[in-house]
Design a protein around this nucleic acid. Structure first.
Lengths: 225, 225
DNA sequence: CGAGTTATTAATCGGTCGATTAATATATCT
DNA sequence: AGATATATTAATCGACCGATTAATAACTCG
């Protein structure tokens, strides 16, 4: 087969730096990457698709982010920034006022509900084997949140607010389970239970969860006796 | 380049049906698929690798399972078979004896612990967006388990064993969260809390979880008064 | 105005993936 | 024994993936 001649195709743009000085391609790539991920799932979206949807080419991803992982890394950095802020607040109130476990649970559930793309990202990039953001997530977030949570529980138990036989580590895991799993499992529970995590039903979920955790974990008079 | 001559390679087996009548290749494929998946994660293992490790070729996967998804489907079918039996038992005891919620929780956690590859499969193929076993999982299992669980909770509440204000649907979600999330999040919690889900620690987890759920959900005298 | 830098496209590379096909050897049936 | 069904290997296909490179155009600075 001879090297085909210029091959008359659609009059697409030719190479070269564009005229407008804006250069918002980097931001557009991040934005459409988020959108495509939320709609189609992480594994199904390649750099070509992201680039095309963002109105550019895959080479731009390498130009701005080095490689595909660099793009994901940039996404996560933007994503967990508010979480880390929240965490810093928790860490700061070290030995001071009672961090009110119920308020803590409620705050994290509210945060998950208001970032609907976050549970899917956690499933795909943290919980899933080979998720490429696991390292970062553990280092920047989970590795700090979990010990802080255990410390809070330990302090509360020492003050007699929690059952004496309660293992703070196990209680922390239960709290995280009750907070997070309803969101990551929502695609399933919506279908098998008609369960929604929005609007009024969300409020009922929060009240139910905080109540269940409190009753399950707090000391009561007969215990203390 | 000329079509190279027979290319002297190692004296590997030639095509053709083998002599031994055993034909356990199907089982070997399922077994090594489980092992490889457990060790290296789902996304990183292709059919070639599975087949080679099982001592055969990738074409056998298509021969026995049709396609890659068929292999996963077979894995899941084997895995949840005991669950479905369990479920049938649960569905059958409709209006009769109390199904003992704590025993139920304990049984499901034990099942997850004894199939250590199952949580990762659930994450990858059910919870993850685009997971290809989600339909099957919902239809064969979750779609029946969840309503059955809700029915049990409803009945118990009607009998006054649970708090009057308890929403059975939300309580079912909490129960599932407490049962499942400690397992699917174990790759993280092992790192940030040193939490293991095996041996003695598993027993403590089960006791802790059943106790927390019971206290959080059961009616107590002061409530009934 | 000209040289160098920056941003962008198009083309392509090498690799891997799941899937298919042709050839071949054994088993089974008649 | 001969025909047909079954099980297996080797080779290959086409698609897609991430990454790289060369060409090109605009911008910047002297």
């Amino acid at each position: 087969m001879p090297t085909r001649p210029p091959s008359p195709r659609r009059p697409s743009r030719r190479p070269g730096r564009p005229s407008g000085g804006d250069a918002e391609i980097r931001a557009a790539l991040l934005q459409t990457a988020r959108e495509l991920f939320l709609r189609h799932g992480f594994g199904k979206v390649g750099i070509r698709r992201i680039a095309t949807a963002a109105g550019t080419t895959s080479a731009m991803i390498h130009y701005y982010f080095g490689d595909k992982l660099g793009l994901y890394r940039a996404m996560l950095d933007e994503a967990i920034a508010p979480l880390v802020d929240n965490l810093r607040r928790l860490e700061s109130m070290r030995a001071t006022a009672a961090p009110d476990l119920e308020a803590l649970v409620s705050a994290y559930m509210r945060m998950l509900a208001s970032n609907p793309w976050l549970p899917a990202l956690i499933v795909h990039e943290v919980l899933d084997e080979g998720g490429q953001l696991r390292e970062q997530f553990v280092e920047h977030f989970a590795g700090r949140l979990a010990p802080a949570l255990v410390a809070v529980l330990e302090r509360e138990r020492a003050r007699g607010l929690l059952r004496r036989d309660l293992d703070p580590r196990l209680a922390a895991i239960s709290a995280l389970s009750l907070c997070i799993f309803p969101f990551v499992s929502q695609p399933i529970t919506r279908r098998v239970l008609g369960f929604s995590v929005e609007g009024e039903e969300f409020d009922r979920l929060v009240r139910h969860t905080t109540r269940l955790f409190r009753e399950g974990v707090f000391a009561r008079t007969e215990d203390a006796a």
